[in-house]
């Protein structure tokens, strides 16, 4: 073996370590153990698999829920888009979610602005907790109570009933996102705008609103999805004449054994995932915008 020793170097430089040795050396004395990576991968699969499995199922030719799907066809999708019951429930869900999200966004934003003006008062803190309270109540408790009262108020199975219940359920989410957007909103902006000659109303329109707009938009999306996906209350206040997509899906498993749910599920999974991935990308690109860091926190939606 020949070694090149440069004359100026007194101590011969150590031989270049092999790739394996270098990989081993990159690890410090505080490495991530291999078993941890293995367990993490397993848990990640556990988290993702049940969601992704509906996609291959939706192309099945079979009329049962057995995996693996047999053959591939689009008949479940054809079924979904030609069957009135599915289409009606999809349309109902969209209408209910759009109305409920609009109401919740206006009501929640207004409440957040009000609480922001009253901040520091004990009564305002109490109000804040009271308005966030529904997030903590189990859906089933709300659903049964609402059902009984709606029976008396003749709201069961009506569009208004759905919209009101979902709007009330979604308002705390809007309140939370807008409040956190306002949280680090610097009041000196308003003083600056006043010192430049803007009236309070102009200041609100030109300074406050643009800065909290992302919080409001986030709240609106969250409200829409909360309603669109809500199933427990919907199951109780449904009627044969009016039901939403989640209720139809529930029925297709419990009552009808209708495999069209596979198509509907994978449509929802893909659509919702795309929406959130886009939101994620847009967010990560805009993080440097002033006033954006504050509304990056929100509440996780309720589960059932």
């Amino acid at each position: 073996m020949t070694t090149l020793v440069e004359p100026s170097i007194e101590v011969p430089a150590p031989a270049k370590p092999s790739l394996l040795a270098r990989w081993r050396n990159r690890r410090s004395a505080d490495p991530t153990p291999v078993w941890l990576t293995v367990v993490g991968t397993f848990v990640a699969l556990y988290l993702v698999l049940p969601t992704l499995i509906v996609i291959p199922m939706s192309f099945s030719e079979a009329t049962t829920f057995v995996f693996p799907p047999r053959g591939h066809s689009l008949w479940l999708y054809r079924n979904f888009f030609t069957n009135d019951r599915w289409l009606d429930s999809l349309r109902n869900s969209f209408i209910v979610a759009a109305c409920a999200a609009s109401i919740a966004t206006i009501v929640g934003t207004s409440a957040a602005l009000g609480l922001h003006q009253l901040r520091g008062r004990r009564s305002a803190r109490f109000m804040q907790s009271a308005l966030m309270f529904p997030i903590l109540v189990p859906s089933i408790v709300i659903a049964t109570a609402v059902y009984i009262s709606f029976l008396r108020w003749h709201l069961v199975g009506t569009l208004a009933g759905y919209v009101l219940a979902h709007a009330a359920l979604a308002t705390p989410f809007v309140l939370a996102t807008v409040t956190s957007a306002l949280g680090t909103f610097d009041p000196t902006y308003l003083r600056a705008s006043a010192s430049l000659g803007a009236s309070p109303w102009r200041s609100f329109l030109t300074v406050t609103l643009p800065l909290i707009s992302r919080g409001v938009a986030t709240g609106a999306v969250l409200a829409f999805v909360t309603s669109f996906d809500e199933v427990v209350i919907a199951l109780f206040i449904r009627s044969p004449r009016f039901q939403t997509l989640p209720v139809q899906m529930y029925n297709s498993v419990v009552v009808e054994i209708d495999p069209t749910i596979a198509a509907s599920s994978s449509l929802i999974v893909v659509t919702v995932s795309l929406i959130f991935l886009v939101a994620l990308l847009v967010n990560s690109r805009r993080t440097s915008r002033p006033g954006s860091a504050n509304n990056r926190r929100s509440v996780v939606r309720r589960t059932r």
């Binding site: 150590p14 370590p17 040795a21 270098r22 081993r24 050396n25 690890r27 410090s28 004395a29 505080d30």
Partner: peptide, 25 residues
């Protein structure tokens, strides 16, 4: 950190008195 043992050596030797501690945790 190499002396403390928080990093592993790529090459060379560390001795405490005459004891070679290069691979001692």
């Amino acid at each position: 950190n190499l002396i403390a043992g928080f990093e592993s050596l790529t090459s060379g030797t560390i001795r405490l008195d005459s004891q070679d501690v290069s691979t001692l945790p």
